[in-house]
């Protein structure tokens, strides 16, 4: 690449022109301090615009820092005026890629900007390879969907509050719901699996209850838990997850509570472990006994024999839901 090194007046650089900006990094004071102490180690790259103006290709934060500390001019590398825009963009992306790993939003921005000059995804993949972007069709589609999300959600993707898989799910929601879910996750910081679980529950509950997701998680009992100042983040998360499951699966919740009550009423010793079939679907219950001596074994056998006539035990085996009328 043939650059022309030149001292350029800051007033001739259009800092509002973000044509080639890829980085999502915000201006930081430490850069200003560094430039002020050591000077500009890497001169920014500029592209000439019109007779005397310049567009930033690389070095947005460095230029902002120079301006902040009161410089009126700086050294820069000037690109040839006849250089094709796609190659200027490629240079801007490559400059970022060579310094650090691009975050997802930066990659999404890069894809969107490359799409202005390249006709199809095959060209983008092949050009991306040249400038250090590892892409494939599926990833490009994901990045495009990511790019459609609001700035606040993108910020949460950058800060790792919202993983890519969740962000892509938010893309399928209405804007208000996507924003509210993102805010909710930001507040309570659930794990990825918890986010997936919560998102599925709220989507389905909203459908069942004919209301929007934002309304569901902003108002009523969920809203009240979120706003409860006496609860810490993990307590809120635990209560909300339990509440969502109870509302989404009322019969299952009701039956499990009934099972727990009956099991408790059996007063089984700690050395006898009673397990129902998974989801109560199969017919095989299991009882595991732990013992250290023949005497202990005999005691447990006596307990098991008594169980056979215990009403609570019989109730468990019947798998009947009480209060059935309310379920249908």
């Amino acid at each position: 690449m043939v650059y022309k090194n030149k001292s350029v007046q800051l007033c001739l650089i259009d800092q509002k022109d973000l044509t080639y900006q890829i980085s999502t990094l915000k201006p930081v004071d430490c850069i200003s301090q560094s430039v002020s102490q050591i000077g500009l180690i890497n001169p920014p790259i500029l592209s000439p615009v019109g007779n005397s103006g310049y567009r930033i290709v690389s070095g947005f934060r460095r230029i902002a820092a120079c301006k902040k500390i009161g410089w009126s001019e700086l050294s820069a590398r000037i690109l040839p005026s006849d250089m094709e825009q796609i190659n200027i963009l490629g240079l801007a992306i490559a400059d970022n890629v060579q310094h650090r790993e691009l975050n997802l939003i930066e990659q999404a921005v890069a894809i969107e900007k490359l799409g202005l000059y390249l006709d199809d995804d095959t060209d983008i993949i092949s050009y991306g390879k040249k400038i250090g972007l590892q892409l494939n069709r599926q990833f490009i589609n994901r990045l495009r969907r990511l790019n459609k999300l609001s700035d606040s959600i993108k910020d949460r993707v950058i800060s790792d509050t919202i993983p890519l898989t969740i962000a892509l799910e938010l893309d399928k929601l209405d804007t208000a719901s996507a924003e509210e879910v993102a805010l909710f996750f930001d507040e309570l910081r659930p794990t990825l699996n918890q986010q997936k679980e919560i998102l599925l529950l709220v989507k389905e509950l909203a459908r069942v209850e004919d209301r929007s997701i934002s309304d569901l998680i902003k108002t009523g009992s969920i809203g009240a838990i979120r706003g409860d100042m006496d609860l810490d983040r993990s307590q809120k998360l635990k209560r909300i997850r339990a509440l969502l499951k109870k509302r989404r699966y009322p019969a299952i919740h009701h039956f499990e509570a009934l099972f727990d009550r009956n099991l408790k009423a059996l007063e089984l010793p700690r050395d006898i472990d009673f397990s129902p079939p998974a989801n109560f679907e199969g017919n095989r219950f299991s009882m595991t006994i732990f013992f250290h001596s023949l005497a202990e074994f005999k005691t447990h056998v006596g307990t098991l024999i008594r169980l056979a006539d215990a009403p609570h035990f019989i109730e468990i085996l019947k798998k009947q839901i009480d209060n059935q009328e309310t379920l249908y």
Binding site: Y249, P250, A251, I252, F255, N279, F280, E281, G282, K319, Q320, I321, L327
Partner: peptide
């Protein structure tokens, strides 16, 4: 209120 049945199909919770 579905659960995954023994044959992999989603079925209503058995007590239901």
């Amino acid at each position: 209120e579905f659960i995954k049945g023994l044959d992999g199909k989603m079925r209503y919770f058995k007590p239901l």
